[in-house]
Nucleic acid binder design. Structure first.
Lengths: 158, 158
DNA sequence: CCCCAATTGTTCGTACACGAACGATGGTCG
DNA sequence: CGACCATCGTTCGTGTACGAACAATTGGGG
């Protein structure tokens, strides 16, 4: 959808350096990670279906279904979002009645988050979509390469 | 810096499902790509030095140094940014006198971008930093694994 | 018990990311 | 030539991302 492949036909069009430059953007990990993430987001939007869910909103819902109940900061750590980002994600999910927020009786600083009935229903319906999205993202890799890739990728996240 | 590892001590704290859930966020490619990209951004900010440059601004400068001259949309395709994102990146680089913009005499729709003297000087000084950042990002992988990882990652970007 | 450092949630400001719509220009084809 | 469609740059709106500062609350050490 939004994602566009780099136009390779243009790569050598206006080159001023005939020799190889000492820094090639398309060989850098950061650039490749960014493009792979762009492609994944595009696949996500095309497959999540009618529900208007972003990858972060989906991640928050799925993690909340996993742990049952969590404070905002806790859920943020579990999904790798900082407190400020969490604000917006939570706000939009609450506005759609997919999650509910109540004060923690044991700690007046905290707000406990849970899925609503509607949220549980959406999670049940969207779980298969999630796996489908992961499959399509890894689609270009041979089945044998996928586990190896995930193992290496996971090392770059700790 | 901004990036935080998922707190593994909290992963099982409030679990309501004793059995394994059917969708584990931390095993999904999209989540891992996002976290790896977060970590890379953090490494970038810590190593780019005194210059206040973001990864996208750095990419635009480096690509422009590579091709010499390009229109906004062309440079956007070469760096995988859409036209709207390019607006902000270009605006900030022009405000800092790192790049210059002039109308294309052959096509009145286009604006040609080039590095200024100051921009060339910054690129020369920052190139080594760029390689250092890529090395640190791949740091957790054994040297033999790095090429294999990049090869697989590149397949997920086309 | 009181002070103090840490944690929680919130807001502000800046910077990507991209769909969508727009006016201006360019090339093409009948 | 003229209708037509693609491309260029721009703007608007929504949604991440995150540093920084803030008030309220908690827990621990002296």
């Amino acid at each position: 959808m939004g994602w566009r492949a780099v136009d390779r036909a243009e790569l050598t069009s206006t080159a001023q350096n005939a020799e190889a430059p000492d820094y090639l953007l398309e060989d850098q990990v950061g650039h490749l990670l960014r493009r792979a993430h762009q492609r994944h987001t595009s696949i996500f939007q095309a497959n999540i279906g009618d529900q208007q869910l972003t990858p972060l909103q989906f991640a928050a819902l799925m993690k909340l279904a996993d742990v049952g109940e969590a404070s905002q900061n806790h859920l943020g750590r579990l999904t790798a979002m900082d407190a400020a980002t969490m604000q917006g994600v939570i706000k939009r999910l609450i506005a759609r009645d997919l999650i509910a927020r109540r004060p923690d009786p044991d700690d007046r600083r905290r707000l406990l988050l849970t899925l609503t009935t509607e949220g549980v229903a959406l999670v049940d319906k969207a779980t298969a979509r999630g796996h489908e999205i992961s499959d399509q993202t890894l689609g270009p890799l041979a089945p044998a390469d996928r586990q190896a890739f995930l193992k290496l990728l996971r090392r770059l996240t700790d």
